[in-house]
Computed example of a mutant assay.
Amino acid sequence: MKMIKKIEQPDAKFDLYFMGYDSPKAVSHGNDFSDREGLIELTHNYGTENDPNYKVTTGNAEPHKGFGHTCISVDNIQAACKRIEDAGYKFQKKLTDGRMRHIAFALDPDGYWVEIISQNPIDKTENITTTDLATYRMNHTMIRVKDHEKSLKFYQDVFGMTLMRTSENKDAKFNLYFLGYPGSKGVSTESVNGVNPTADREGLLELTWNYGTESDANFKYHNGNDEPQGFGHICVSVDDLDAACKRFEDQGVNWKKRLTDGRMKNVAFVLDPDNYWIEVIQNEKLKNRANW
């Protein structure tokens, strides 16, 4: 990835780094950071790097499960995983681990999981030793949800997303739902590698629902912003920020921050059914407003 934009906030003692793929082969090459799918925003609070006791919660360990992982799709998954391993990075799951031999999970320096999936049939890439980073995609972000029906309705009705793929895993008692904005590609129906028909996309949202959680009145997921902190939010850019926020207000959403709250008048935060934060910003290509 490349750093697409950096926003420094020295008064508040934190900086923001927006990372994404930006080669000429990238989906959003050259676009403003607000006019892209599939960015990762890294937030650095000053001084944490010098605190030996500081660590983030990754969302994958009890009792603070919630956020699961980010995911990149690659051209040749075997070669891509070897490249990452040769660079000295650790894996939560290698391709050869377990039953699922078509995905891997690398660990970033904070222990966050990064899923790696293939854009091509994996039986045709096993003997290829090279990988082209310019073809990589920031494919999706995964969060766990308590009630799949409520969450699917929320992201489709409130944020206008389309359910692009459902993966049922009845034996393991969980389902996966992939949502996104179809754009010119429409909704994929044919599988790329026998498992994942959306591997060539960017900026999808994966919801993981474990059977039965919706029936437990005391069950809830950790949103990453309550202590201990880790995952912060997903973000959607819109054509008209003021109009979008008025629409959200008319729909009766739960707000973490309205546009009029606080000093930052260029961002709002909506809460989803599990209290995950969804940042809403202006797409600067469609309407110059924020002047980031």
Rank of each mutant, 00 (worst) to 15 (best):
I40F: 03
P52L: 02
A106T: 08
I116N: 04
G98T: 03
S118K: 02
G88S: 14
G30W: 03
L163N: 11
P121R: 11
K150R: 14
N120R: 10
L107P: 04
T43C: 05
E149A: 08
H64I: 06
D157E: 15
G30S: 04
T48N: 13
E62F: 14
T129M: 09
R83K: 13
V27F: 00
E115I: 07
D35S: 15
Q119S: 03
H102Y: 05
A104M: 07
I128V: 14
L39R: 06
D86R: 05
E41M: 10
V74W: 00
M161A: 13
Y155W: 13
T43P: 10
L152V: 11
N139I: 00
F67E: 00
W113V: 07
E41C: 13
G30M: 08
A80M: 06
F91E: 03
F105L: 09
K82H: 05
L163A: 12
R144K: 14
V74L: 03
L39Y: 08
Y54L: 11
T135S: 15
R99Y: 06
T70R: 09
T58Y: 02
M161R: 12
Y112T: 06
G66L: 05
N53Q: 07
S118D: 00
G68M: 12
R99K: 15
F154N: 11
S118M: 02
Y89M: 14
T96D: 12
H44F: 13
E115F: 07
F67Q: 02
F154W: 03
G98R: 11
K153G: 05
E115T: 01
K25Q: 12
V158H: 04
G98C: 10
E149Q: 11
